[in-house]
Design a binder for these strands. Structure first.
Lengths: 356, 356
DNA sequence: CTGAAAGCGCTTACAG
DNA sequence: CTGAAAGCGCTTACAG
């Protein structure tokens, strides 16, 4: 059925044949063009284009033990800002010439999450990628060990980790919360709450810490309220609380949760921003669609992805050089400009109607 | 630096050595366990586990010309419901033993979109995947040709295509809009509008068609309004229109756009749902966070992903069988239960406060 | 049921 | 600057 229309793709041999050169030369044009005489090179390049030749990635990966592929390991893509980060990564990867293997780490849903994730790491590493971008809330020490033992480059992307020897790209959430709290204190507010999640996320803990710091510095009493991330659950919790009392300012760790808070407050006839000001983190479309619109700490998710992929590329290139020097047995020191492996991306604040 | 801590992964040779068998036997345990004597098999399996052996995917792919990898081709992941579909695909792929290559097709942003996308298809196919899941609004005829000429299985996922010989999984958006419109007519509403996008998306055209059909059937005058998908733009357009007049019912092709519509209507003191009822498509979190909450046609995006990946798996297995029969030169007819290649996933309606 | 051997399509020292 | 040849780590007929 399918057999009769099958057109098997061109091989490097076909290109070599058509160009009247050996396949070694074609390979060189592809990988080290500077080693080929311009005239030959151009002729071969023309034929490659005509034939639409694309090297077989499996063969290439096997022969060179480089796959020009990176792995992205994510929890669900629908989770908060993951998709945006992956878009940023993908755009940069394309620009830098890397393909992507995607691993969705839904091991939390597994009977035995630890085993499942360990298994996943093994799969990722054995899949022969040149580097890994790991996106999650945090990373377990066990996997840090696995990373260190393997020889793939890894960049933790918006993922909390105490071990600073592992490269990461993130946002300084603690500082963001600290500065926002301080700003609201400076504006004369005293009763400022932070609303975080029941489920423990390290990113949210950082925000709480920054908030608490600013409050204590100002001699104010911090109050942390933890609610569910699910709208139908947190709305009930909000109602209970707001029926009793409300703060001057509520800083909420996720903007969708902030919008719920606004909705419940309004239903209880609390005027926003006059009686209650609300601030969210993230700045998604929820913030614009809310009434009143929501003031947000804008976390540039796409950019995190870009920066992380750039960093990973640099690390992979460095690792390649290390390899060469390792073989030459020369301690390579001169040109070794250190790569900055811990990067924070700048956030900003978008002021809207929910604050005054 | 890195050299001294490098632990090169176990090869199939290592397993064979430890088990005292040839590498061919180990390979059989991995790929055709039924061909190996149970005693030998169990011993080898134990050693594989102990050594944490994972076959090198590049070598495996090269030798077998099967990669147990599928490609997902998407426009940006942040676009509407793409991330949810990919989550569904990923969960099913994992269950079915396939890895994923991710291609983010941002060729629209390119100087020459057509060339870029053609190039992308070539890259996808040459990357040696066993199958492709293509997600987009629609697919150009040119790429249909490419699909037919290649021998990879492809499933169009929530992507409009006139050529029904290409397998697809989608939702019957036309029927959904038709039935919703009819329902609202049955409830006694006469002035019903549909709000779609300025940018031409085929999915949205289908919704418009279904709506128009129902209106014409009832002898009512359809009215289609096209606005931008961007909140700050469509709100202006909504305001202009609603200052003049408003319908009894507005069906909006995306729920975020429906929420904007509600917001503007309320700001003009149009009572919802008393004077104006609003219905969205998709049922994301926007619908819950809206005030009043939004009635939606719920399109099960995750399930589309699951069904598409299941279908693709079936097609890849079938293609494999075809291959074998092709070599045997026997026209295979008996067991050939036809695979249903065009599937629609069921939608539902979630009634909320924006309708009465 | 198992092993020896060819081959998958590339890359890369090594000669020339 | 270019070619002949070995090798990357697997799979799979082919013998036995």
């Amino acid at each position: 059925m399918k057999g009769d229309r099958r057109t098997s793709p061109n091989k490097i041999y076909d290109v070599a044949g058509a160009a009247g050169v050996s396949l070694a030369t074609v390979s060189r044009v592809l990988n080290h063009p500077e080693k080929v005489k311009p005239a030959t090179r151009e002729k071969i390049e023309k034929i490659i284009k005509e034939l639409g030749y694309k090297p077989n990635l499996n063969a290439k990966g096997l022969a060179s033990s480089k796959s020009t592929t990176i792995a992205i390991v994510v929890p669900e893509l629908t989770r908060s800002s993951i998709a945006g980060m992956v878009d940023g990564i993908a755009a940069t990867a394309r620009r830098r010439g890397y393909l992507i293997r995607l691993f969705v780490n839904n091991s939390n849903n597994d009977e035995n999450p630890m085993n499942a994730e360990r298994e996943l790491w093994r799969t990722v590493i054995s899949s022969g990628v040149d580097g890994i971008l790991y996106i999650n809330d945090e990373i377990d020490d066990e996997y840090i060990e696995i990373i260190k033992e393997s020889n793939v480059s890894v960049v933790l992307t918006n993922t909390i980790c105490a071990d600073l020897t592992i490269p990461y790209v993130a946002i300084d959430y603690r500082k963001a919360a600290y500065e926002m709290t301080k700003e609201m204190i400076n504006r004369g507010n005293k009763k400022i709450w932070i609303i975080s999640t029941i489920k423990k996320y390290n990113v949210n803990d950082l925000k709480v810490k920054g908030y608490e710091e600013a409050m204590k510095e100002a001699g104010l009493e911090p109050r942390v309220i933890n609610v569910s991330g699910k709208t139908y659950l947190n709305e009930k919790a909000y109602e209970e609380i707001l029926k009793e009392e409300h703060p001057d300012v509520a800083i909420v760790v996720r903007d969708s949760m902030a919008v719920s808070f606004i909705n419940v407050a309004r239903s209880l006839h609390i005027a926003i921003p006059d009686d209650l000001q609300v601030i969210g983190f993230q700045n998604t479309k929820y913030a614009e669609l809310s009434r009143p619109t929501l003031t947000c700490i804008n976390t540039p998710i796409y950019e995190i992805g870009e920066v992380a992929m750039d960093l990973l590329t640099d690390l992979m290139h460095e690792a390649e050089l290390e390899d060469e020097y390792y073989y030459l047995d020369t301690p390579r020191e001169e040109g070794k400009e250190e790569i900055e492996i811990n990067k924070n991306v700048e956030y900003s604040v978008v002021w809207r109607q929910s604050t005054r």
